[in-house]
């Protein structure tokens, strides 16, 4: 999935991206399991520390971008309800 994942910032610029390999360390694996990740690849979307959506499995770039846009749309609510991180 790397090549598609790496193209995301070009298409959706107003987000920050972090890639986490669950094979790398126990910490990574535990963090994934704590967030309910049960398969790879899983994309988790957070806003102000809140889990606002996820995409599980492989997608074509176009579909991935459109699904992420839908999740990002709910961000307005998230910002309204959250205290900004200092």
């Amino acid at each position: 999935m790397n090549p598609i994942f790496e193209q995301l910032p070009e298409h959706l610029q107003d987000a920050k991206y972090a890639k986490m390999n669950v094979l790398d360390s126990t910490e990574n694996r535990n963090l994934a399991m704590e967030h309910g990740v049960m398969g790879t690849p899983t994309i988790k979307v957070f806003c102000e520390g809140r889990d606002i959506g996820e995409i599980v499995g492989f997608r074509a770039l176009e579909k991935l971008v459109s699904e992420l846009k839908d999740i990002f749309a709910s961000r307005e609510d998230c910002i309204a309800q959250s205290t900004p991180l200092e």
Binding site: V22, L23, R29, A32, M33, V37, M38, G39, T40, T42, V56, G57
Partner: peptide, 18 residues
Amino acid sequence: LMGRGVFVCATCDALLYE
């Protein structure tokens, strides 16, 4: 439920089932 508990590759995802 694919990727949400249903999986096809133990080597990829086994460690999420500790």
